[in-house]
Write a protein that binds this DNA or RNA. Structure first.
Lengths: 337, 337
DNA sequence: CTGAAAGCGCTTACAG
DNA sequence: CTGAAAGCGCTTACAG
């Protein structure tokens, strides 16, 4: 059996209170006392029972991070930064996967209070905005990513501005027939599409729906598949804005298989600046944001929310920047088409 | 304030026991009773307090998954499969990052009992074998990956056989000057190096230490860097066995930058079969194993260990298979050198 | 099938 | 600076 405070107290001949003081450092304890208690803890291999502490304190020291799909490089990087930043604050991180289902997302929100967690970081994808708006009784939650809601704290990147910048970068290189590729059924794609179209408008390029390529998912597999079937019926665009780096990697893979060279024949850009993007062949032009700062910003908001559930809702827009690498370049013949 | 069993019991005019029976279904409850209790739970928005339950039951329903570095695509896939498989068993997963430090790994083992968790899945990298051997009082733990230990349950892939197979595949294509690249200071690299050398021996190729390329890390950055500096002083090998797909992606990126073509000028193979490997340019030849089955196998062992800490230690070797893609091909001139 | 009581291990007022 | 007592919310013998 594991030793408890009582056992330690008995062995050290002090009260449980004193043991607790030594463990938590809430009240100063005399050196002699401390040494005696520490010796007893060592001898009994005492380890505090965190369930008991959680029950007593009403805090588990655990937060949940809910991402749509944990298997992607993007999720991996986010998980890494959150776990590191949370660890520095003494918080553990429970991972949840919403499996790109709005139902699971709702479940998380409603049942999170049942879980062992003090707070929730939620990256919704399909969550019906309406239910969030209505869902009054959220656990302490910070939304991340693209979601249209006003009821909770929110950290995100200005997707419209970023995608506009990305598209204008291609315009600036001299491209005109600029395609966009992504799963078209989410808030993320709505915003990125908006930025893309805004860029076209600025560049006085007419919208061409044939250049809007629907992707079955957010992964390389979908990107490759969509690219391949697209090219069966359509000519190669000048450039392709992929809504994520993963899609871009899939698209480039398909282009390579079909014998098209990037960027000589077609420029391809992504979004997210995942680590591997810099080592793609060719290295990927993309939108970057500071992920460690993103994580600490979210945790700041979450801790503030846990401490004061009534505080006003905050929305933080993280700065982004265009990272130009070799997957985008001027067209070989800068001719007008 | 959140409602408790007592509140529900009072409103439903039953005892707390009955509420608990309805919630947990341990003892059958009459329909009339159940309906009354469920109505009360709904009205009070009752959600059980899992900290209390954990304290009472001595189980939190939470396990920890400790991986060296969460930011890699490999970790992402493992995390995904573990979270999905654990979720199916009603277990939550707390993520820990050992940051490739043996100290943090030890800490996890010793303090895990302090955490809220019922069990630990640990992928050690630098954990000194000796301390594991000695560390008698482990929490319920299943080791995954490459670690030389006999004290705990263990699931892994036969790294020696797999790397031997990978290397012999290159031999079979007609390559002779086969390099190997990886961080050389871990159990993983020791085993993979062993398989590589065994293959050379079988192929009657003399070991050439100049073909053993030390990599600063397990990531693309290190792979690219090591590849680049290697080629300043050495000729291009026929083929390169990279100890992970990530390293291979970095190596290919560097080769591409330097104008070498894969596989025309040099074959490159990886290990792990990460999702993106199939979409590398060119698609990566690699070692695959069934990751979902890996996760369920580990969880089976962990649950058995939690249920019976005294049961005999098990080691499971997961089958692996060589996946041949386009990054490996016969040399252009199949000449003897 | 249901109820009253005890206890999981911790920490925090409350006294001294 | 320390001690004795109470209680966080749950579930499980123990009775009925």
């Amino acid at each position: 059996m594991r030793a408890t405070v009582k056992d330690v107290a008995r062995l050290a001949q002090v009260s449980p209170k004193t043991v607790s003081n030594v463990v938590n450092g809430t009240t100063p304890v005399s050196d002699a006392m401390r040494i005696r208690v520490e010796a007893a803890m060592l001898e009994l291999e005492y380890v505090p029972n965190l369930s008991a502490r959680a029950l007593r304190n009403g805090r588990s020291g655990l937060i949940a991070l809910a991402l749509p799909d944990l298997s992607t490089p993007y999720s991996a990087e986010m998980a890494h930064h959150f776990v590191v930043a949370a660890g520095a604050r003494g918080l553990g991180v429970q991972m949840e996967e919403t499996a790109i289902s709005g139902e699971r997302e709702l479940q998380l929100i409603s049942k999170a209070r049942a879980h062992l967690i003090d707070g929730l970081i939620l990256n919704p994808v399909l969550l019906p905005s309406v239910s969030v708006q209505a869902g009054a009784r959220l656990p302490p939650t910070v939304f991340i990513g693209e979601v249209d809601q006003r009821v909770g704290d929110h950290v995100w990147v200005d997707n419209v501005a970023a995608t506009q910048e990305l598209t204008l970068h291609l315009v600036g290189l001299g491209h005109r027939r600029i395609a966009i590729m992504g799963s078209m059924r989410s808030e993320t794609s709505r915003l990125r599409m908006k930025g893309y179209r805004a860029a076209l408008r600025i560049a006085r390029i007419a919208r061409d729906r044939r250049l809007e390529i629907a992707n079955p998912d957010w992964f390389p597999a979908g990107g490759a598949q969509a690219m391949t079937s697209y090219l069966i019926e359509h000519p190669l665009p000048d450039a392709i804005v992929c809504m994520t780096d993963s899609i871009a990697i899939g698209a480039i893979s398909a282009l390579w298989s079909l014998g098209h060279r990037v960027p000589e024949d077609v420029s391809v850009v992504g979004y997210d600046n995942i680590n591997n993007g810099a080592f793609a062949v060719p290295p990927l032009t993309t939108i970057d944001f500071d992920k460690p700062t993103y994580a600490t910003t979210v945790l700041d908001l979450l801790e503030a929310r846990i401490a004061d559930p009534e505080r006003p809702v905050e929305r933080v827009t993280m700065p982004h920047r265009l990272v130009v690498r070799q997957s985008s370049a001027p067209p070989r013949t800068a001719a007008v088409r």
